[in-house]
Design a protein around this nucleic acid. Structure first.
Length: 240
DNA sequence: AAAGCGCTCAACCGCATGCTG
DNA sequence: CCAGCATGCGGTTGAGCGCTT
């Protein structure tokens, strides 16, 4: 077998990948990996696309609205990162996961500090990030949701019984969460977003693919990394 | 100036799930 | 129904960078 490349992607690889995704869609990753000549696995190609190259992705710091939304949705769904990401236009599950991790660490540290100064009974659970808590031991698939990053592949996923949704009883992180939230603002109420990227300036939720939406037009990105990759040549790149 | 430390984020891994023949 | 393959998801890792000492 041929040796597969690993590690950071080069700009050339990115250009190559985008080209082939444009040609074949973002579904057949093994195929794309093969025909593109990139010495990457399909998995790696998909990840690169989804987390970095996909048009419409926002890069950079999360807005306070997004931060609040993450907290709110995490409170609701737990570590269902991809699901949370679907509600945050331009953000990836990876990004949100990383944000959450950072957030939890920060909270943990804060808590440690406050506990040191004023020990309380709730000090029993460490609020620092841990993978040990579970929302639900089984993964739940929203198969009737169109994949968030799908750029045009056919939707063939079947439907799933929503009754199989999160089993509230397994929500063991709930306590941990409450502990954290209680020290936060009283309620996390989404406010009208003030998004930095001009792409999302108007009604971002309708631009980003949400649960209910079907196909959507490809949005030609106006931000990095696409402009650096394609410049004006990028125009019409995603047309067909 | 440089060594140490902590943080961020891209990328990998393993497992679960879905699809197809 | 089942097996094999492709894709998706969540957890984890590590390189690189900035800040502190």
């Amino acid at each position: 077998m041929e040796e597969m490349r690993k590690g950071p992607w080069t700009e050339q690889e990115d250009v190559h990948l985008v080209l082939y995704v444009n040609l074949y869609g973002d579904r057949r990753w093994d195929f794309i990996a093969k025909v593109s000549g990139l010495k990457r696995t399909g998995k790696s190609c998909r990840l690169r696309w989804v987390n970095y190259l996909h048009p419409g992705l926002k890069h950079g710091k999360m807005s306070s609205y997004e931060e609040r939304r993450v907290l709110e949705l995490h409170n609701k769904w737990g570590n269902r990162w991809s699901r949370i990401a679907r509600k945050l236009p331009g953000r990836t599950d990876n990004e949100i996961k990383n944000y959450w991790r950072t957030y939890m660490r920060k909270k943990g540290q804060e808590k440690k500090r406050t506990n040191l100064s004023s020990p309380s009974t709730s000090a029993s659970h460490d609020s620092s990030y841990s993978s040990s808590y579970t929302v639900n031991s089984k993964k739940i698939k929203d198969t009737n949701e169109r994949d968030f990053f799908d750029t045009g592949g056919l939707l063939t996923k079947g439907s799933l019984n929503h009754a199989k949704e999160i089993k509230k009883g397994d929500y063991t992180m709930d306590e941990i969460w409450k502990d954290i939230v209680s020290s936060d603002d009283d309620a996390i109420t989404p406010v009208c977003p003030t998004l930095t990227s001009p792409i999302w300036d108007y009604c971002p939720d309708s631009l980003w693919i949400t649960d209910q939406e079907k196909d959507t037009n490809m949005i030609v990105p106006t931000s990095e990394p696409f402009h650096s990759l394609f410049g004006q040549d990028g125009v019409g790149f995603f047309a067909g």
